[in-house]
Structures are given as C-alpha cells and as structure tokens.
Design a protein around this nucleic acid. Structure first.
Lengths: 109, 109
DNA sequence: TGATATACCTTGACAGACATAGTAACTCGT
DNA sequence: ACGAGTTACTATGTCTGTCAAGGTATATCA
C-alpha cells in the first residue's frame, strides 16, 4: 500500500527540513531514507525532491555545497539555515493545526 | 490563526463527502459550516468549493438538484451517492495513512 | 560488455486552490 | 424607498507543487 505525494502536498519542504536538522545530507540519500523509513509507502519523485531543494534554497531555508567525493558520483550537500529552522518550526505547527482541523471535520458521530 | 487550504490540498473532497453523509446540503451552507466548525481557522474559497462539486459530480461521487425555494436565492443541493460513500471511506483511510507517515517522518528524537 | 546502483538535472504537463469578477434575490436600518 | 449587507451560485484565468519523461555521468559486479 502506498499513498500519493499529493496527499501530503505542501509538506515536502517540512520533511526535508526535518531530516536536515540532524545533519547535512544530499538528494539521493534523503530519498532513500524517506522510502526506507516508510517501508516504501511514501516515495518522493526525483523531480519533486530537486525542485523542493531549489525552492528551499531560493527562500533561504537551506544552503548547499558540492561534496569532495574522491570516488563515485558527485554529491550536492544541503544544510539547514537558521532561517530554515524557523520555517520548520512554523511548518510543524501548521501541520498540527491542519491535522486537528481535518480530523475534526471528518470525525463521525 | 488560520491555515491555508493548500496544507489540506486534496482533502477538500473528503470534507465535502463527510458532510453529505449526514444529509443533502448546498454550497453556501457547507462553506459556513466548515468556517464555523473550525472557528474561522479554515475556510474554503468559493471557487475551490464549487470546482470540487464539479469534480465530484463528474466522477459520480455526488449528484445534484435544484431546491424548490419559494423565497430567497435558488440553491443547488448535493447528495452523496453510493459510489461517493466508497470514495469517502477510501479517502479516510488514505488520510489516516498520510498522517502516520508524515508524523513518523518529522517526529524528533 | 552490459546491467544495476549511485547521483544529479531539465523540460513540460497537470490538477487543485486561488483571485477576481459577475449575476440575482432577499433583509434590514434609516 | 434607498443602500448596504447577506444569501447563493457561476465563470475565467493564474499560480504552485508534483509528476512523467528524458538526459548526464561514475562505479560495481556478473
């Protein structure tokens, strides 16, 4: 069973920022992590992920740099910025509120 | 405090179907109900609501008829169909899964 | 040599939510 | 009787996030 990203549309940024709270990471790793963490139930498409990176970098939530891999394919690493942490906190709050609202609206009885 | 509909994007149909489970209703009433039930925290824009009606009617989840108001503005009433009930059940399940997944992905510690 | 995995990027299409505008009938205060 | 506000629905075009589809390049392993 797997859900479409459209059901969590708008929350991709939050997921990425959350992961970057722990440590810098790069696209491929983040994608694998999400897939594995959810047992394949949720998968971000590459285009979605990389366009999220662009958006987040443009609005100052993350910064990026090329890794210095001496072997294998090059990797672009992303760091969460101070501003990104604030955005993450706000997004988390918004998500809690969204959950409450939808649950309230569709609860039965 | 209020959230944008984009945070619940894709769940508008579910909200509408849920309300129609109780009884037939019409656009303006549904919109007011949502707004009041959430103390104004969540409001569907008219364009969003009416385009959802179109979508739901096209895919057979609801049917509609003009009310026979003898006074006041005309009202178009909507009924949930048998198929709509099935869609609703599926959407509810999907929402539960989406919640679980996002909570898992952004939980800290 | 070819398949698979790692790793990133670009382009264009699509769908849902939105802003904005319009139509029309009723209600209420002055 | 007038204007403002409420009720109630509709149409058009824009924006944004996700996606499908395609591409580049390196390393590993059969």
């Amino acid at each position: 069973m797997s859900i479409t990203s459209d059901l969590l549309r708008g929350h991709t940024d939050t997921i990425i920022l959350r992961l970057l709270l722990n440590r810098d990471s790069y696209g491929y790793e983040i994608n694998k992590y999400i897939s594995e963490k959810t047992d394949g139930a949720y998968e971000l498409k590459e285009a979605t992920l990389y366009s999220a990176f662009r958006r987040l970098e443009e609005n100052g939530s993350i910064s990026s740099y090329w890794g210095d891999e001496t072997t294998g394919a090059r990797r672009r690493y992303y760091s969460i910025t101070r501003q990104g942490r604030a955005v993450y906190e706000q997004n988390k709050t918004d998500w809690e509120e969204a959950k409450t609202i939808l649950d309230e609206l569709i609860k039965e009885g």
